[in-house]
Design a protein around this nucleic acid. Sequence first.
DNA 1: TAGCCGTGGTC
DNA 2: TGACCAAGGCT
Length: 369
Amino acid sequence: MASFQRQPAERLVKPSAIAPALLDWYDRHARTLPWRVASSDLAKGIRPDPYRVWLSEIMLQQTTVAAVKGYFEKFVTTWPTVGDLAAATDDSVMAAWAGLGYYSRARNLLAAARQVNEAGGFPADAAGLKALPGVGDYTSAAIAAIAFDEPVAVVDGNVERVASRLAAIEVPVKTAKKQIQTVVSCITPAVRPGDFAQAMMDLGATICTPKRPACALCPVNAYCVAFKEGPDPTTLPVKLPRKARPARLAGAYVAERSSDGAIMLVRRPASGLLGGMAGPYLTDFSSRHDGATGEDAAPFAGDWIDCGTAEHGFTHFQLTLEVMSARIDGEPALPDGAFWCPRDELIHAALPTVMKKAIAAAIPNAFHA
DNA sequence: TAGCCGTGGTC
DNA sequence: TGACCAAGGCT
């Protein structure tokens, strides 16, 4: 019966032995990443810069390490300190973030930078950090552990997977958050909590992977209930089936001014899909309904030419854009938020990937030189 | 609370 | 090739 079932944390094999084994592995196999401080420097007492830790953690939310690296380097080169970032313009930050996705992160990033700069520095504990916009349970714990040596449980998707397997948690992760939190708290050490957190994430990324975990190479396989007793680690964590992604349709209109080749862009509202970002005029659509297409739905009259379609997948729907283009001779009344972007500034505009696809469908070499 | 919010890589 | 996924947070 469920009441006689031992709690996951109690099923752990020698919980106090896990952190030492994992840290020993981490000392030999830690990934070298731009936002990390070398272990030799850590040994000298050099602490990670909270600004760089925070910036990297925001960028890494639901985003791969490979995708983040270049953006991180660009940001810390352009804005080496939180004060530099706080002084940046909204447009420059949105443009620098363009292509990385989840654009509310960029707006929250800038708001938080200004808040921190005003306060004279970052909050030095998880509770204070969580009050910053864009910083939730995971990110506040990660920054507190890595930058401020606070022994808090850091639970992200990797850690959920590792903990689910270590304690053989067979209930769906969605309903096991608290159990997982308890398991991770139970094995988080008082010393080197930041390295431990990063070791758990490295383990999840390189050994305890979702599909084909390399259990034979795992430094903590001796303490892994799923590995030793089952169920098969690849079946954990238990995830509920996702809902199907609906398909949506909308019109995209690329207007080129014939006098100088400038492209009409529209700045989108600050909130919602692609909030604060620019792109060609799109007809109104959402995850729930299609937008209008065709010549009649154009922002103004003109010789609109059919340029085919552009496809783009969002998290919860698939979008097909029916792209049209026109060369504009006069000065038509522009829709709200629209402006002419000089052709040589197009590359530097805050254009999300889906917008670049739409423009490229109309002007194939738009981003080549 | 469950839906909203991007993108590119992997198999 | 399409489904799944990767260091979540906000409302």
